[in-house]
Design a protein around this nucleic acid. Structure first.
Lengths: 189, 189
DNA sequence: GAAAAAACTTAAGGTATCTTAAGAAGCGAA
DNA sequence: TTCGCTTCTTAAGATACCTTAAGTTTTTTC
């Protein structure tokens, strides 16, 4: 909980009142390993902060292949932001890869909070901007770099995560088959 | 100009006062074919609405290959949103593909306007959300679809643009070589 | 309207990545 | 500790896409 407040305070400064109002709308949620937070057809109606654990979002393409879009551990936000922002049904699975504890902020309360505590509006604007930047980075990467370069980039950017998720999920994040990632690792070792 | 106002009014409702304040900070800018709005090393400090013409943003990868990230015609916004939002220097070229007339909103004025006319803050929040959704869509496409499917998607989504830009630019948007796109078109015709 | 420049096509040979299939290794549950 | 499930590896054959290079068509410029 203190961790969460510190996290918010990195980007904005909340006073006592703001903090109290924020605290009052938080919801704690626990997920077991492999449990889903969101499934296709559902809507994302909360912002979700990982207090402890590890999660990912992914979808199935027309050949039922998994593609991982986001990975997160402690102090990351995880969501189907597409669904949250557009208010459309999700196409994603958002799943715990370990036993995970989340702090959730329901959209309805959050939008009220934006008015009373403009810092929070500012905070999430920054988060959404960062999300945009991250996705754009990924488009650029996928057009410029080959699979092994993307793997190296991934290892740099996600050093803490790499150890905690199975390799086939990393492959599905990079956009290659697990077999090919295995081949690349051998080739470069 | 009326066009621009209608465009804004699609998403938010501005009163007389708001409209006047908005109008007072607009800047018109004309670009000749092939002229650049932004080059690598510069910073994006305006929002840019295309009144007439056609533009694209692209970057060069380490092999000096062009990759087109955004295409736009009349009534689209064009920018290096990454640079605008993060305030970092751009890695992009933003270039006119035809003689183009823009309406620009400088960041400094716009941020003041956000306070006086909150509808504009709302408006650009929606635009940035849409931009996020579009980029995410693209990541999903590039992982799920082969080149020809991406080409068909592109033609559906950008019917009006397809006619106006050279095919090698479409190829660089899809992430394939011009030769390969040419081959695909023949194969499926 | 001719010359120059830009864009598009074709084709051969090459490379990155996929598919399938099988076995090996690691790991959680009883 | 062992069984069963999940994950990882290996390898052969297939395919999507790239590179190079040359020729053709279209567009621009003077």
């Amino acid at each position: 909980m203190q961790l969460f407040i510190n996290h918010i305070n990195k980007d904005v400064t909340l006073d006592e009142v703001g903090l109290k109002k924020l605290s009052s709308i938080l919801v704690f949620k626990e997920l077991n390993k492999k449990e889903f937070l969101i499934k296709p057809g559902e809507a994302a109606n909360t912002m979700n902060f990982i207090v402890q654990g590890c999660m990912r979002s992914y979808y199935l393409d027309k050949n039922a292949q998994e593609h991982t879009l986001q990975l997160g551990i402690e102090q990351w936000w995880i969501n189907d932001l597409y669904s949250y922002l557009s208010r459309k049904k999700s196409r994603m699975y958002v799943q715990a890869l370990e036993k995970t504890l989340l702090i959730q902020i329901p959209r309805i309360e959050l939008e009220k909070l934006y008015i009373e505590v403009p810092e929070m509006s500012h905070f999430f604007r920054i988060k959404i901007q960062n999300a945009y930047v991250a996705v754009q980075e990924r488009v650029i990467d996928s057009m410029s770099d080959d699979a092994y370069e993307r793997y190296e980039n991934f290892r740099k950017a996600y050093r803490d995560i790499e150890q905690r998720v199975p390799q086939y999920i990393i492959a599905s994040y990079l956009g290659v088959t697990p077999e090919f990632l295995s081949y690349l690792r051998k080739k470069h070792s």
